[in-house]
Amino acid sequence: MTTGSLFPMAEFRLIAGVDEAGRGPLAGPVSVAAVILDPQRPIAGLDDSKKLSEARREALFPLIVERALAWRVEFVGPEEIDRLNILQATLEGMRRAIAALQPAPELARIDGNRAPKGLRCSSETLVGGDRLDPAIMAASILAKVSRDRAMVALHAEFPAYGFAVHKGYPTPAHLAALAQHGPCPQHRRSFAPVRACLEPR
């Protein structure tokens, strides 16, 4: 079941918040996190990951991991993004993350307006959920921090592109490096700026 309005909280005990990071970049994976918070172990300072400093996100990450009843981060890589398209790849990452939670959620509350099909639990979408729901906030932090760390690791492998700085987003510096060096294996070839570098001139 998918809806744009919240289910009454009393109907469900185990509610997973779900969010992603990295739909817009030209390179690297899209990261999806699912989190079931423990109401007995609240976490102060949760917010939309985009509103938090990097230092604050890094400080909250271990607290979420330690106190959550369950959490999971899934990466969907460039090849799968190119094969499925970015929307379907994100939904597939959500499906995997939710399916991996133990204990299993009774409800998945997903940031945005699309939910994956084939879930074994109820689901609802919540536009702006990363500003409204603590579990989605926690998921947004896990997804963002995990992806940023992955891009820093990729920088060591492909230093010419500056992944550690821009995290794969289409900044002027990234576009210039892409034009100079061409795409690396971590670039999403279905994205227009990368595809343009592969076309005959």
Rank of each mutant, 00 (worst) to 15 (best):
Tyr161Thr: 03
Pro105Ser: 05
Glu54Val: 07
Asp130Met: 06
Arg83Glu: 14
Ala59Val: 02
Arg120Glu: 15
Leu69His: 01
Ala70Met: 11
Gly129Trp: 09
Asp130Thr: 06
Ala34His: 03
Ile43Asn: 03
Arg41Lys: 15
Ile36Pro: 02
Val127Arg: 11
Arg149Leu: 14
Ile141Pro: 05
Pro159Glu: 12
Leu52Gly: 03
Glu92His: 07
Ile36Asp: 03
Ala135Gln: 05
Leu69Arg: 15
Pro39Leu: 06
Val152Arg: 15
Asp82Lys: 01
Asn85Tyr: 05
Phe158Ser: 02
Ile81Ser: 10
Leu52Pro: 00
Leu69Tyr: 00
Ala100Met: 08
Thr125Asn: 07
Leu87Ser: 03
Asp111Met: 10
Arg67Asp: 09
Gln40His: 14
Ala55Ile: 13
Gly128Ala: 06
Gly118Ser: 07
Ala156Thr: 11
Leu87Thr: 13
Val30Trp: 03
Ile36Ser: 05
Leu91Cys: 03
Glu157Phe: 00
Glu80Gly: 00
Leu37Ser: 13
Pro78Ala: 15
Asp111Trp: 12
Arg57Pro: 12
Ile43Trp: 09
Leu132Thr: 00
Phe61Met: 07
Asp133Trp: 07
Gly129Gln: 05
Ile64His: 04
Phe158Ile: 08
Ala70Tyr: 01
Pro134Met: 06
Ile43Lys: 04
Leu126Ile: 10
Met137Lys: 10
Ile81Glu: 06
Leu37Ala: 13
Ile36Arg: 04
Pro105His: 05
Asp38Met: 06
Ala138Asn: 10
Glu106Arg: 07
Gln88Asp: 10
Thr125Tyr: 01
Ala44Pro: 01
Arg109Pro: 00
Leu101Ser: 11
Pro134Phe: 12
Lys117Asp: 15
Val145His: 09
Arg109Met: 15
Ile43Glu: 04
Arg109Ile: 13
Leu132Gln: 14
Ala59His: 07
Glu80Cys: 04
Asp130Trp: 06
Ala135Ile: 09
Ile110Asp: 02
Ala160Arg: 15
Pro134Tyr: 13
Val127Gln: 08
Ala99Gly: 14
Ser53Val: 02
Val76Ala: 00
Ile36Glu: 02
Val73Ala: 08
Ile141His: 04
Glu106Asp: 13
Asp38Val: 09
Ala139Thr: 04
Thr125Lys: 02
Ala34Phe: 04
Gly45His: 06
Ala34Glu: 05
Ile81Val: 15
Glu79Asp: 15
Pro103Phe: 05
Asn113His: 07
